[in-house]
Simulated scan of single mutants.
Amino acid sequence: MNGATATPRLRSARDRKSKPPPPRPTNAHLPNGANLLNGAVPRPRDSPDMTQKRSSSTANDICCRLGNAHFLKWRARDVLGVLRYHPVPCAFAASVLFFMAVEYTLRMIPPMAPPFDLGFVATTTLHQLLAARPALNTILAGLNTVFVGMQTTYILWTWLIEGRPRSTIAALFMFTSRGILGYATQLPLPEGFLGSGADFPVGNVSFFLFYSGHVAASVIASLDMKRMQRWELAYTFDALNVLQVIRLLTTRGHYTIDLAVGVGAGILFDSLAGKYEDGKKTAGNYVKAQNMVI
C-alpha cells in the first residue's frame, strides 16, 4: 500500500515541475501601464467612499495632534519654572518683542543721509579728542599695528612651531570670507574718518569695512590660547581687543556692525577649522584601517 501510493505522488510532483510556467502579463494587460516585472503593483482607483474616509482620517489625526499639543499640558508652575530655570531664553524672548516694537516704529534713514551708528554716538567725545591731537592718533594707530603683528605672529607660531594648524586654517577661512563679503557690499567710508599712515593696513591704503579682520583674528588667537590654557595671554588679548574696538569706533575706522560681526566670524571660523581637522583625522583613520585590512 505504501509503495502504491508513493508512486503517483512522485509522478504528480514531476508533472507539476515539467509544466511550463504561465505567461506573465505585460504592460499592455495592466491598467495605467503598471509593470509587474519591475515589482510595480497596479493601484486601483479610489472610490469616493475611500477618499472621504481618508480625508476624515487625516482630519481626525490633525485634531488628535492638536488635542495632545505640548502647550495644553502646561500649568502655572511650569510657566514660572521657565522663568526660573531658563532666564537667558526668556531674556531673548523679551528682547525680540522689544526690537519688534522698535523696528515697526523707527523711521528709516534717508538715502542721502549718513548712516546712524550707535558706536559713533558713544565715542563722540573721544573722536573729537583724537581729531584735535593728530600725534596721539598716530601713536594709537602704531600700537594697533603692533597688536595686529602680535595676532599674526601667534597664529603662525601655532602652526609652524607647535604643529597645530587650526588657528591658521581659521584665519585663512576668515580672511577669504571677509574678502568676498567686503567686495560684494562695499560700505562708504564713515564721515570724520581719522586715518593714519601708521595704522594697519600700513600706508593709509584702502580696505574692506565689512567685517573687521582685526577683531576676528584676535578672537581666533584668543580661543586657541584658552584651549591651551594660556589664560593670562588670552585675557591680555581680549583686553587689547576691547581697546582696539574702542579705537576703531573713535577713529571711525569701522562701523559697529563690522566689529560685532568680526567677533562672530572669529568664533565661527575657529569652529569650522576644528570640524575640518576632525574630518581629516577621521578620513585618515579610515584610510589606515583600509590599508591594514588590505
Rank of each mutant, 00 (worst) to 15 (best):
V261P: 00
E232Y: 12
V202G: 01
V219H: 00
P188N: 11
G253M: 06
N241H: 03
I267C: 08
A217Q: 03
A216G: 10
D258L: 12
R230L: 11
H254C: 07
A216S: 15
V205C: 03
F210Q: 02
F208A: 15
G195Q: 13
M228I: 02
V261L: 05
D270C: 07
M228S: 02
D224H: 09
Y211A: 15
I257P: 01
L240F: 12
G192F: 13
G213A: 13
G197H: 11
R252F: 03
G203Y: 07
F210R: 07
T256Q: 10
L223R: 13
Y235C: 01
V215W: 00
A198T: 11
A221M: 10
T256P: 06
G195C: 11
G262Q: 00
K226F: 14
G195L: 09
F269E: 02
P188Q: 13
L243E: 00
V242E: 01
Y211T: 15
L189F: 05
V245H: 00
G195H: 10
W231A: 01
L268T: 14
V202I: 15
E191C: 04
T250Y: 09
G262V: 05
T251H: 04
L248S: 09
L240M: 12
T251K: 08
E232I: 13
L233G: 05
L189N: 15
F207A: 04
Y255L: 09
S206G: 06
D238P: 01
V219A: 04
P201N: 02
S218D: 01
G203C: 06
L209E: 11
D199V: 01
G203Q: 08
D199E: 15
L233C: 03
S222M: 14
L233D: 13
I267P: 02
P190I: 03
V261D: 00
M228C: 00
L187F: 14
L268A: 10
L248Q: 15
F208K: 13
D224W: 12
G262P: 01
G264F: 01
L243P: 03
E191L: 10
R230N: 05
F200D: 06
I246M: 05
I257E: 09
G192R: 15
P201R: 05
A217D: 01
T236H: 04
T236R: 08
I246H: 02
T250E: 08
E191K: 11
Y255G: 11
V245F: 03
V242A: 10
T251E: 10
V215G: 00
R252Q: 14
Y255M: 08
F237M: 09
V245S: 13
Y235F: 10
S196Y: 05
Q229P: 00
N204Y: 07
F237P: 04
R252I: 12
W231K: 10
F210L: 14
L259W: 05
V263G: 02
S218N: 08
Q244K: 00
L189I: 15
A216N: 07
R227M: 04
L233V: 01
D224N: 08
P201K: 04
L187K: 14
A221Q: 00
V202Y: 07
L249M: 13
S196N: 11
A217C: 06
R252W: 04
H214N: 10
H254I: 13
D199F: 06
A265T: 11
V215P: 04
L187S: 15
W231G: 01
F193C: 14
V202K: 06
T236P: 04
V242Y: 03
L187N: 13
L259G: 03
G264W: 00
G262D: 05
G264A: 06
